[in-house]
Write a protein that binds this DNA or RNA. Sequence first.
DNA 1: TGAACAATTAACATATAGGTTAAATGAATG
DNA 2: CATTCATTTAACCTATATGTTAATTGTTCA
Lengths: 120, 120
Amino acid sequence: MNATRLDRTFAALADPTRRAILARLAAGEAMVNELAKPFAISAPAITRHLNVLERAALIVRERDGQFRRCRLNPQALQAASEWLDFHARFWSESFDRLDEHLKKTIKPRKPHVDRKPKRR
Amino acid sequence: MNATRLDRTFAALADPTRRAILARLAAGEAMVNELAKPFAISAPAITRHLNVLERAALIVRERDGQFRRCRLNPQALQAASEWLDFHARFWSESFDRLDEHLKKTIKPRKPHVDRKPKRR
DNA sequence: TGAACAATTAACATATAGGTTAAATGAATG
DNA sequence: CATTCATTTAACCTATATGTTAATTGTTCA
């Protein structure tokens, strides 16, 4: 409960329909109408997906007469992109360290006997 | 249903507990035991989170005697990172194009009358 | 103004997520 | 070999996600 911005961003990106909608919007703004076209789901289902994207601040909607115009919020990917970039880099460094460590200490097979027995 | 790799990656990253586990693992491999420590949730709940991370290929688990050692799969962030990088870049270009377009055409207020009436 | 269209909300069904406690499994050890 | 510890599985609960159809809202225009 009480999801953060990053939570909502990643959750929004976890659905292929929503990623496809975003990909379409990257080519330019569009009406709900047109966004719905490629998908075999009902209009209310599309509205829900757009709500999710909007709550994640990934898109902005504005009324244009009878229609509703959707466009990307280009800043929204920032946080998620930074999280991933940082970790992608950090992880490989971490892996390199491990790799080096393994090369130095060839299978020490330390059996973790460093536990204190519990008195009772 | 039938989630793709990217679906699973983003879904796994959408939970703060799991991101914290990943952040811990970036500092080096750890036993389930230790991963669980910072969290006020039960051991089975941790196991479930680890299952999610493993299904998303973000971590690898291997038995080490009584324990189970967890470590990152550094390649796993690749796909998600690429998706985000690509779109983050593409989006801002898209935004620039829109911006330029708006500067050229100062509020045309085109009312979208290009619809064909449906005969019946 | 009323029919038609765009989009949303309401009400509902079902699946999945994420948590719990209790029981089971597998390894270490006195 | 019986006990303890680490971890998982089983069974269950509740909230949320994602879809549906029917009804509602707001806009256009003949």
